[in-house]
Design a protein around this nucleic acid. Structure first.
Length: 487
RNA sequence: GGCCCCAUCGUCUAACGGUUAGGACAUCAGGUUUUCAUCCUGGAAAUCCGGGUUCGAUUCCCGGUGGGGUCACCA
């Protein structure tokens, strides 16, 4: 397999869009699978939308996710942003002189031209085109300006942009996921490639950078398909090889429109902050629009890398099924090592996770949550004081008197238990169940009060699990309090 | 509106001409259980419509319908 050089080209907005993560994943899978490189390039050519600190937070998020680019900006061991790779700079605003050179070439070849039209004129023109139901498109007002006039107007200090001159004919986009898509050049606008502030537009920068950075596969969202013919024209005008294109389907809102902030979380950081595990998120997003086998849901990262196949990516958009994400996150949560889960839980819990009792509670409760941000409220009852109504202690088929009696008896029994019985909840369960059978008691009248005495909750995990968490001493303490509570 | 893309259960998806159209999430019903959760069993649930091609279409072709994307000196 030929090594693929793929690239992710986000604009630094301060967060990573969930759809961006998906293309990043596909880029990463393809690069790693073929022994190639995954390259990060920052598209910051819009000076009006600069966000302070955006690059750093973007890099930190990728680091958290474990998707580190082989080339491009990164955070080094000293917490500084550095660039790695031979095709830099990898930030477009640092490449202005490069773009300039190619703009000059296009101008010289007459594949591009200066345009002095004012914003007002362009708006008026488009307005008219819209009212006459024509496609809004530049009318080439400045196409045939003479060299002298252009020169004179520039020297006079007039603002201008440079537009590409779309040739006649048709352009075919060969797309790995969509097949061959044909466009009539006559439908395509003379796109601005150099803005009046001297910055290139995306369309020019992406072409030059992809060529110079030797990108073999351009994987991006489907919304780019309509502008791809412009890019292909530019590749050809500049004498570059055209890379392989793959336009992947969009991620959708529940109403099937393009995923938007209005309708829920679109930032990877939002999901991380809610306590979705990176592994679960990667599994979920990485199998949206692409499923290796169709008979399984959980795939580890290495499997996805090995099984990924660009040509098997679905063509239609995908609604994010958040309930399934929850389920998947729970699957990962349950199967984590204690050490790991303590570390990932730390930011979400204000209790001391290094305390053995809290750690045991964590082991019990992690099965019962979908996201880490639900953990705090699950763990709090383990350290909370009594707050329940004493009537809660009474099993529905029983009386307060009986509850009290049962608690006294089970308390005595627990006091006599050997420490060895507290090794795990199963051992405790065996003992308690044997006790119930031996004394010819029924489960409900013993276990319900015991569980409530330990948890203080109407709903909780089992009394055996709770006893294991609290240990003999603390367990007895809680039972005693409950007995007192019953009067 | 022009151009382009897309179309299997509610949702994510599998089935590269022949399957009782499979799996997962969600949902419903039962079971296990002291409660909750888990777990187990079972159920309901889909090939957008119409034409072709073919012995045979979810699958290939055409048309329709529906949905989406895009038409900036934003990416």
């Amino acid at each position: 397999m030929t090594p693929a050089r793929t690239r992710l080209a986000p604009s630094p907005t301060g967060f990573i869009h969930i759809g961006t993560l998906r293309t990043a994943l596909f880029d990463y899978f393809l690069a790693k699978q073929t022994g190639g490189e995954f390259i990060l390039r920052i598209e910051d050519t819009d000076q009006t939308r600069l966000v302070a600190g955006a690059l750093e937070s973007l890099l930190r998020t990728f680091k958290k996710l474990g998707i580190e680019p082989d080339e491009g900006p990164r955070i080094d061991n000293e917490n500084l942003i550095v660039e790695k790779g031979d095709c830099g700079p990898y930030v477009q605003s640092a490449r202005l002189d490069i773009y300039k050179k190619y703009v000059d070439q296009l101008l010289k070849q007459k594949d591009a031209y200066h345009c002095f039209c004012s914003k007002e004129r362009l708006e008026g023109m488009r307005e008219q085109q819209r009212t006459t139901k024509q496609t809004p498109k530049y009318d080439r007002h400045c196409l045939n300006l003479s060299g002298e006039e252009v020169k004179a107007r520039i020297e006079a200090g007039e603002q201008y942009v440079v537009r590409m001159k779309v040739p006649e004919g048709e352009t075919i986009v060969d797309d790995v996921v969509r097949g061959s898509v044909k466009f009539q050049n006559a439908d395509i606008d003379d796109q601005v490639i150099l803005k009046s502030d001297g910055f290139p537009t995306y369309h020019l920068a992406v072409v030059i950078d992809d060529a110079l950075m030797k990108i073999t596969h351009v994987i991006r969202g489907e919304e780019w398909l309509p502008s791809t013919p412009k890019h292909i024209m530019l590749f050809k005008m500049l004498g570059f090889d055209v890379p392989v294109f793959a336009h992947v389907p969009l991620l959708l809102n529940a109403d099937k429109t393009k995923l938007s902030k209005r309708q829920g979380d679109v930032a990877v950081e939002d999901y991380l902050n809610k306590g979705y595990l990176p592994e679960a998120l990667l599994n979920f997003i990485g199998t949206l629009g692409f499923n290796p086998t169709g008979d399984r849901e959980i795939y580890d990262f290495e499997e996805l890398i090995a099984m990924f196949d660009l040509s098997k990516v679905k063509k239609s958009g995908a609604v994010m099924n958040l309930e399934k994400l929850d389920w998947m996150n729970n699957q990962y949560l349950k199967n984590m090592e204690l050490k790991e889960i303590i570390e990932v839980a730390r930011p979400f819990v204000s209790l001391d996770l290094d305390n053995d009792m809290i750690a045991r509670a964590l082991i019990i409760e992690r099965d019962r949550i979908n996201k880490l941000d639900e953990l705090q409220e699950k763990l709090e009852p383990y350290v909370a004081e009594f707050q329940y109504d004493s009537s809660l202690l009474v099993w529905k088929k029983s009386t307060a008197q009986d509850a009290k009696l049962q608690l006294k008896q089970i308390k005595n029994f627990i006091e006599d238990l050997e420490d060895a019985s507290f090794v795990n909840s199963e051992a405790i369960e065996r003992e308690v169940r044997a006790y119930i059978v031996k004394n010819e008691l029924d489960n409900g009248s013993v276990l319900w009060p015991l569980r409530v005495a330990l948890s203080g909750q109407e709903k909780s995990s089992s009394p055996f699990e709770l006893l294991w968490v609290f240990g003999k001493e603390k367990g007895i303490e809680r039972i005693s309090k409950a007995i007192e509570f019953l009067g």
